[in-house]
Nucleic acid binder design. Sequence first.
DNA 1: GCGGCTCATGAAAGTAAGTTTCATCCGTGG
DNA 2: CCACGGATGAAACTTACTTTCATGAGCCGC
Lengths: 304, 304
Amino acid sequence: MAKSPKISVSHEPGGLIVHISGLLPSLSPAEQRVARLVVADPADAARRTITDLATAAETSEATVIRFCRSVGMDGYPQLRIRLAAEAARRIEPPDARVVGGDIPPGADLAQIIATIAFNDARAVEETAQQLDPAVCEQVVEAIVGAGRIEVYGAGASGFVASDFQQKLHRIGRIAFSFPDVHTALTSAALLGKGDVAVGISHTGTTSDVIEVLEQARTRGAVTVALTNFPRSPITEVADFVLTTAARETTYRSGAMASRLAQLTVVDCLFVGVAARNRARARRALEVTAEAVRTHRVGGSRRRS
Amino acid sequence: MAKSPKISVSHEPGGLIVHISGLLPSLSPAEQRVARLVVADPADAARRTITDLATAAETSEATVIRFCRSVGMDGYPQLRIRLAAEAARRIEPPDARVVGGDIPPGADLAQIIATIAFNDARAVEETAQQLDPAVCEQVVEAIVGAGRIEVYGAGASGFVASDFQQKLHRIGRIAFSFPDVHTALTSAALLGKGDVAVGISHTGTTSDVIEVLEQARTRGAVTVALTNFPRSPITEVADFVLTTAARETTYRSGAMASRLAQLTVVDCLFVGVAARNRARARRALEVTAEAVRTHRVGGSRRRS
DNA sequence: GCGGCTCATGAAAGTAAGTTTCATCCGTGG
DNA sequence: CCACGGATGAAACTTACTTTCATGAGCCGC
């Protein structure tokens, strides 16, 4: 009939709240009361039930529904969801995370957590960014074709080395890592052409690791260095150099982030190797997973 | 009577989605189907009605309600709203890198690197987000006051355990970690009041670690669990539970990201402990750094 | 002032959504 | 084999949402 209702409300792409306050004056008094509540605190409105909201606006549920329709929603539930989404979006976490390096002396745990996580995450991202896929490819190639792989690392890097060794081992590659220099040296002396030696050192100056890598190279093995410093001594004994990108902070936090970055590189190499023979790697993983299964307790589910 | 299953499974301040995926394995099969739908597309789930969602998950409405309760919501409407809010918050959809997903078979190294780095970084960030500072504080407190600290972990988590042990040791705390269960068990048997035992297990189902932690608890030590799954068996033998937030993926990439997340938590605890006595920790760090100095080559010059 | 009109409004009826209860089923361990 | 406990969906039930409809206020033109 005559008066076509307020259709053509278009698609309010930007903000629902803005949209609502825009057509607020065109609403009936009772609907305006609802609208004002909604605009004032969208998140709160989203939490309320229709009856609740109606009561708060001193009106009936029917009016709330009419309001929903007036602003272009199908019904109340839809409005609620849109409001929740809207409210969530506008609350941008100001998040005063300490961007720089060190943790301030008076920091509480929450700050410490935020700082560490931020630096860790950034180290991982930046490492990935500067990692040269071509070099990785060559290293993966070498590992895939290797008769034997040895991984060296001291201190914290030693754990990364062990981790890498374990990973390679799990997908059926013959890999070793060593707890001490002497064992490593003797083992490196037995390497030959077609074998691969990987040395991990954050600073790139760990003499033990360099020494072993040098030995390996002398024997004809392909040598790979993983370090944070592209000009450090370890790079001189390496055929391929992979670098992490943990920023220099004080030695502590720097080393912490670096270790995560190292692991990320290790993961990349690992997946690269595994991807070379998907079926075989998967099979190996399944078998090894099965092997430890009896060491897992069953139903992890539990209700009270 | 109040059959209150209100176990208050921690707070989930960070991300509801993250929280849900952590809880996933502790859910019943039918609930898992619902959870997967929700995690896969929160925005879509928020749009659906309960009946609709139940049908999509091939289950009944009752199960959906049970799922809501399992993840700590009052009911379905509340879940819907939270999901809508959550979905709105995540602004950037980095389409190319498969979110929390597997690496596509045909991927080249560059893609692999991007995917891994993305998931690793996110695991770190999300872990930090959902980490409860209050619980950390208590754990730090316990460690600071501990006579002895023991850290247990098997497989990949074993390296994390060793790393933690090494860190604590470097700042002058008496800490141990063990390469095998028997040694660990015998050592745990010697723990007592005032000591701290930390068990690390991604799945939370590693029976060896659980067993040792239980032993430690029996002896009166404070027990801490570090796991990805807040309702896994390990949490039942722990006084304090710290969780990581790596998403479940296939191909073990989940476990890869999880390990980084674990290290992040370890770092947080470490710095927290060190911060308790800054001067002493710094002195210890300097001394230990000095100790390995002779094993470093100087400058960019080759060592002889 | 008075019919007749329009429109906002809420009460109440009606429908759909969400929640609880309960019987059944299935696997597990004795 | 049975007893048990948990998982599950059908159905009963409750609450939330939506529609219908009667009321009454405002507003003309007569």
